[in-house]
Nucleic acid binder design. Sequence first.
DNA 1: ATGCGACCTGGAGTGCGCTCCAGGTCAAGC
DNA 2: GCTTGACCTGGAGCGCACTCCAGGTCGCAT
Lengths: 149, 149
Amino acid sequence: MSDYFTPGQVAERFGLTLDTLRYYEKAGLLREVERAPSGHRRYRTDDVELLHLVRCLRDTDMPIARLRDFAELVRDGDHTIPDRLEVLQSHQHHLNARIAELRERQDTIQHKIDHYLGVLAENPAPDERPLPPPGSGPAPETASAGEGS
Amino acid sequence: MSDYFTPGQVAERFGLTLDTLRYYEKAGLLREVERAPSGHRRYRTDDVELLHLVRCLRDTDMPIARLRDFAELVRDGDHTIPDRLEVLQSHQHHLNARIAELRERQDTIQHKIDHYLGVLAENPAPDERPLPPPGSGPAPETASAGEGS
DNA sequence: ATGCGACCTGGAGTGCGCTCCAGGTCAAGC
DNA sequence: GCTTGACCTGGAGCGCACTCCAGGTCGCAT
């Protein structure tokens, strides 16, 4: 029932390396972590919770610099909650926009896929050509008119 | 009615810099572009179309290396269409997964936002406090029990 | 003839986010 | 006492995707 976590445990839990964990601390994404007498870090529940959010924001591409600003707000105390809200909400908006963009791009890519499928359908490769009508001779070379991009 | 585009036109159209355009060419994302006698590049419709797709794939975070492979397939001719399809389809799957992940993370972030909103609601900042019930005295200091992360 | 703007080249530089490393300490187990 | 494994430090290095730069050419307008 330890009320702290070792670096190894935290790294494991969040799928980070020890190096990254230390890097985050140095970069100001976590408050300075407590130490055991040996000098080894001891992560508290608070640290782990903040790290959870940090991880979440990093995974959604918030830059380190912005994360540092956020972490600073957290360190500055409860009166910064409105500011933190603003950071998180603006990030949500950003994510909405990003998701919408990805979807749009997916549509474009899908058009290209459909185009290729169409090309294959009228001009299938030998090993996946549907059975030719019985009695037909050997297939002629299917000359395609250049690269349709 | 020119049947080609200048670097400036292409850059403008796709929101790229001339440097990036040249970088893409050097990196093998485009085939080698034709030149005017002056040595200036002349982009054909084909180039522009490929660039459109390249842009689309880059915007959705396909790495340059993978894009180069794809462009190579395009250069290699129509028989690579099944391979190109595989690249595009696997990218679509990747995008589906990415979008799903972003949504999940959004949920987590939203929980945090709601949490902060809750804190603000029970403990509003002075300048946004709802009117107190009539007859109440000055508000006591609202001591919060530490950082709720 | 001069100036201008668009473009050319090869190569160096930048910013980000890690990642790796050498050399060291500490606690526990054999 | 010695080894092992987890961790420590400061600092260098890396991969990616650009981005910038110096010095040059070309064609056109004044």
